[in-house]
Amino acid sequence: MGDTSLPRRAWAGGLMALGLAACGRVVTARPTPTLSPAPAVRTPTATPVVLRLPTATPVYTPTPSPTPVIYVVQPGDTLYGIALRFGVSVAALQEANGITDPTRLPVGQELIIPSPGPAGEGASPRLPTPTPMALLIPTIRCAASAMGSLGCIGEVINPQPHPLINVQIQITLRDGEGREIGSGIAGTALDVLPSQGRSPFALVFNAVPAGYARADARVVRAESVQEPGSLYGPVEVLRTEDREEGADRIVRGEVRNADQRPLRRINVVVAFYDAQDRLLGYRQVVFAEAPTAPGAAQAFEVRFPAREAKTFRVLAEGQR
């Protein structure tokens, strides 16, 4: 039972807590969202919590100072995103911190943020200009939690003939008259959105704003690449099976490193849908304790409330 698809490779993020286990391996599992409707708590403001990627607009530009600016790496950060946030180049960040491999950025590492140079000398980061592409967002669902937060979840589909990276979705909360009362930026569960592929996204607001009536979503950033580059490698979904156990639906399966090189990280996303093929939520498992050798397989298992879930899709990607 289940509608499965075979993506090339995957990462992740999430809203609510989950526990995941993989057969024969200890894996790093991330909390991923499940929407549970509950009475909305009315509070004056709602602060969005970005789950995956930094916003496309730099929010802080440090001024030259004898005291260096220090940034502590957070879960989901990339060197590219940090450079964009502080208005410096990736090369300047690497040089200031002695980083030789920009793909390895440990959570908790302290980074020295270099001051932007004078005009004409690298004051602006040499980063691609965000160019939103024509993507599809079939639905977006938001529900209040018992703790008073508002969780929003949706799915983005790439109809373009090439893969996309750095996909960001703006979620806007509106009142009954359509006025904006809050917004935030969400990233996709997959780092790379393949051509004709899809990925879920999620965002949590820490409170339900007064007057909240509905939410809408639009793509504000998406960059096309002919190939995902040397950082990513293909992952094959070998098998999947599902069954109901009490109130849960359990999905088990295996993914295989289909690359010719080891993958230091494999990201598996299992998305669940109702009878109308509307996204209900997703679970995510990340294998990152040790590199996965070429041809080697990893087993995964996830649980999801079975009340509404009728079908599922397994998405996977690997990082070299």
Rank of each mutant, 00 (worst) to 15 (best):
A309S: 05
P75Y: 13
A247W: 11
R8T: 05
V192C: 05
M133Q: 11
P128C: 07
V269A: 10
R198L: 13
E289W: 02
T131Q: 11
A123P: 05
A290W: 06
P54N: 07
V255P: 12
L105D: 06
S145V: 00
T311F: 06
L53Q: 09
I171N: 02
P130E: 04
E177A: 10
E95F: 08
P58K: 10
G120A: 01
R249N: 09
G120F: 01
G98Y: 06
F272H: 10
D191M: 02
V286I: 15
R42P: 03
L84K: 14
E121T: 09
P291Q: 12
E121F: 11
P44V: 02
A96M: 03
R243M: 08
R313Q: 15
D277R: 07
D77K: 12
Y71Q: 11
G24L: 08
A146E: 11
V50H: 07
G76W: 11
L105T: 07
P305Y: 11
P118Q: 04
T139M: 05
G108M: 03
P75A: 13
R104K: 03
D248W: 08
I113D: 01
L193F: 03
R126W: 00
Q109K: 04
T28R: 15
P305K: 12
V204E: 09
P62K: 05
L18A: 07
T188P: 11
P75V: 14
A210K: 03
S183K: 14
I82S: 13
L18G: 11
Q160D: 04
N267I: 01
T103H: 00
L150E: 08
G229C: 15
A217G: 10
N166D: 14
L193N: 02
L173C: 01
G120M: 02
M16S: 10
P128N: 05
F300N: 15
D191N: 09
G197I: 08
G117N: 02
A202S: 09
Q226D: 14
A12K: 03
P132K: 05
C152F: 07
Q226R: 15
R141M: 06
P62G: 00
G182M: 02
M1D: 04
V69R: 04
T240M: 10
V41H: 15
T172V: 09
Q170E: 14
N166P: 00
I99G: 01
G187K: 00
P54E: 04
N206P: 02
G253C: 03
P54H: 07
V73I: 09
P209E: 10
P33I: 04
F86M: 14
L315F: 12
Y71H: 15
T240F: 08
G117M: 00
A92S: 14
N206H: 06
P163R: 09
L111R: 06
S199D: 09
A189I: 01
S36R: 11
E289H: 11
V50E: 04
R8P: 01
V167G: 08
L79A: 12
R283S: 14
L173D: 00
G98M: 01
P58N: 06
P163M: 06
G211F: 07
A143L: 04
K310N: 10
A17M: 12
R278N: 09
L193W: 03
I250A: 11
P291R: 11
R9P: 00
G246V: 10
V50W: 02
C152T: 08
R221C: 12
D191L: 04
G19A: 02
I113V: 08
V72P: 08
A306G: 15
